[in-house]
Design a protein around this nucleic acid. Structure first.
Lengths: 188, 188
DNA sequence: TAGGACATGTCACGTGATGACATGGTCTGC
DNA sequence: GCAGACCATGTCATCACGTGACATGTCCTA
């Protein structure tokens, strides 16, 4: 038998989610999370840079998927088509667990620190898309703009999806949002 | 003679900027800022909710201007035209002090906490625009989307403006960015 | 089997942030 | 012109977050 229980990071995430749901983010200390996971606070900070980060561990995967999708888009695709491919990839990752996503979203919405962290994660997604576009030869104000607009579409679509029934298709809502943006910018 | 020197808040902001420039944000403690302003750390936290906020005191003004601009846009104006009016108002507020803006931007860029705070301030601008649009009768996914896209345009334009010469007109760059977004979304 | 790599524990400490209470000028009503 | 409310600040105590330094015990490998 090994010296420690396996999957410390997973236990910490689990314990954190439970406690945040039970009593809220601010009312939960890192020491309590660690204790529930059978660890110490110091160890918590070895797995997560800070208390917020325990809720955002999965965002690295999402970033990779977006980057891949932009890279894999055909060379002939327009800038915005490549962005749409990235959004489809995001929808595939996010669109699976409606209830979990809702719960997580409600924890984040209730706390300013967490909303800030959420925004910077979204910004890093945008940066990854912009990066991919630049590698495709798209020049810079245009690459950033396309990426930012894409993330704006994703955000709005995601929130709309969350507020609706569980069986809706996120990718479809993303596509509708994009079309709406197209219409909006064209009507001036 | 009064008991205290006037304009405590202004002195704190001034002291903070100086120290952040001299030695960086993280290397500056709240106690040091307060001391330079002739006050105590406890008083700092009475004027600013936290250490970051001392750099964002002016954003409330910006928010008001945006809200006004949306409200004052003619009833006949399209959704995106109202958003553009708000962006013009933002450009008028931000476009005046190129060098100051650059210095502030470099402090913020160098620190993750500050970038997070910047993003949530931008998100609150977006929320204010969306609010104004809803009051004009624009329904909700559309209002959010138009506001988010508008702020994306503002962000990209602002950064582009900062990276260029001081005498460029921010409002013009904003307009160009918007046109570029229009082109991007149309080309799919 | 010795020794290094590694995940965790333990301890100490600085900083950010907040509540409770004290202080002493300024303003207002009478 | 004074009592008392008001208000900005100071002082003190305290807590949670976050980090550096060092210790410990298990597993892996030469």
């Amino acid at each position: 038998m090994s010296r420690w229980e396996p999957d410390a990071s997973g236990r910490l995430r689990q314990a954190a989610m439970e406690l945040f749901v039970e009593r809220g983010y601010e009312q939960t200390t890192v020491a309590e999370i660690a204790q529930r996971a059978g660890l110490t606070a110091r160890t918590f900070f070895r797995h997560f840079a800070d208390k917020r980060e325990v809720l955002f561990a999965s965002s690295a995967v999402l970033l990779d998927r977006l980057a891949e999708a932009v890279e894999d888009a055909p060379a002939s695709a327009s800038t915005m088509t490549a962005v749409l491919a990235a959004l489809d990839a995001a929808a595939a990752v996010l669109g699976g667990q409606h209830e979990t996503a809702r719960q997580r979203y409600s924890i984040i919405s209730a706390n300013a620190e967490l909303r800030e962290r959420e925004l910077i994660k979204l910004a890093s997604l945008s940066a990854a898309i912009a990066d991919g576009l630049r590698r495709r030869g798209v020049a810079d104000p245009e690459a950033s703009l396309a990426a930012e607009a894409g993330i704006a579409v994703l955000r709005v679509a995601f929130e709309h999806w969350l507020s609706g029934p569980a069986d809706q298709d996120l990718a479809r809502i993303v596509r509708q949002s994009f079309d709406q943006l197209k219409t909006l910018t064209a009507t001036i």
